[in-house]
Design a protein around this nucleic acid. Structure first.
Lengths: 217, 217
DNA sequence: ACCTGAACACCGTTCAAGT
DNA sequence: ACCTGAACACCGTTCAAGT
């Protein structure tokens, strides 16, 4: 981990030290074992001090998560720009998504619990929300650019929400599926399953692109 | 909750009281807030006693989870027997799966953590594994019975593992997707999204049934 | 044998006291 | 102002003592 650089009173650097320490703890032992005393020790300050920088352990964790989402966006850009087809695009995203999901995805509910109903969202909540939203733009743009079939392109535009939800569900389901013991039941690899998933999904969307109404309740 | 019925030394009934109390606590406040002292109070015994019935909180939780999986199988049977087509089958499963996932699904890793490597699986671990496995039979049978297209039926049989993984991923992704705030981003309902998912999946499988090789790395 | 509840270890969080 | 670390509340778990 990066060396401690903060001095007494340098709040900016100290805050960064805490985040760096927390990141290291999380990577090493997972969320379950993440605890303030270890973080404080790694950052070379007292547990009490952590609370002058973050209101709670949850808020500290949510900050890490927001950072990670922002990093994902940076990782995603080159994939979106260079993918030669939608299958490659999805596989690239799936590869980037998995390691993040293993560390953070399971506990999405942690930060959503931060929200107090009927109150203005905090700056942190807005940061999280934006980080999530910002991911869609590049991906959506790339998907649109890569769909040779005009019927498919039209589907993307007219039913963007539904198509994105589908992709998101497959991505999450995939990551979740391979974050436990379940793959042991069939022995498929993450990579192969991701490929199978996107092929099936694309074939399905292609077929549905011909149908005028997709969902009628 | 059911009344306490156990007497001093009636280990069978007492164990059931603990499970009943734990189930009630879980339903009321979620896993996060599940705690031994509350369970003991509800079951009208001391915290220490719980540990003469269950080795740990995790084991108690895993037992509840195994029970819930077994209940799911019972709920699933009539759906599998009566569904007129695959879409209805999937929707029925999705409806049953969601409430279970909200309470238990998030923490699959909890029980998988029970396993000590290179050791014989415990009776509880076997129970969990079997409960999971047993779900596939009826579902698979129904899917096979309902596929009019012989090419699709052949796909099911020859690539059962892959098809099941796909369905499982969609089901989990769907439940996960609707267990947080994410649906707020697009406003679709669980029901509608499940329908869209299975239609797309089926159309995709149908298309792929024509292709000889599905996954080649 | 079965059960109790005080006690221990651990952890999130606070706050009076230090610099 | 910023930081410390003892202290508090809470919780999983144990165990000597009770019945």
């Amino acid at each position: 981990m990066t060396a401690i650089r903060s001095k007494w009173g340098d709040r900016e650097a100290r805050r960064e030290d805490i985040l760096t320490a927390a990141r290291a703890c999380l990577a090493e032992q997972g969320l379950q074992a993440l605890n303030i005393r270890d973080i404080a020790r790694l950052a070379q300050l007292s547990p009490g001090t952590v609370y002058t920088y973050f209101a709670s352990k949850e808020e500290l964790y949510a900050t890490l998560y927001a950072e990670r989402l922002e990093l994902l966006l940076e990782e995603l850009r080159p994939v979106c720009d260079s993918a030669p087809d939608v299958e490659t695009l999805f596989l690239g995203i799936a590869r980037l998504y998995w390691p993040m999901y293993r560390l953070y995805g399971r506990e999405l509910n942690v930060w959503s619990g931060l929200r107090r109903k009927e109150q203005e969202p905090t700056a942190l909540e807005l940061r999280l929300l934006n980080a999530s939203r910002n991911l869609f733009g590049p991906v959506f743009g790339a998907a649109l650019r890569l769909s040779a079939d005009p019927a498919l392109a039209r589907l993307y535009q007219e039913r963007a929400g539904e198509v994105m939800a589908l992709c998101w569900i497959c991505l999450t389901g995939l990551a979740e599926h391979f974050s436990g013991d379940r793959p042991l039941l069939h022995g498929l690899s993450y990579e192969d399953t991701a490929r199978l998933t996107i092929r099936t999904l694309m074939a399905g969307l292609q077929a549905l692109a011909a149908t005028p109404v997709i969902v009628e309740s």
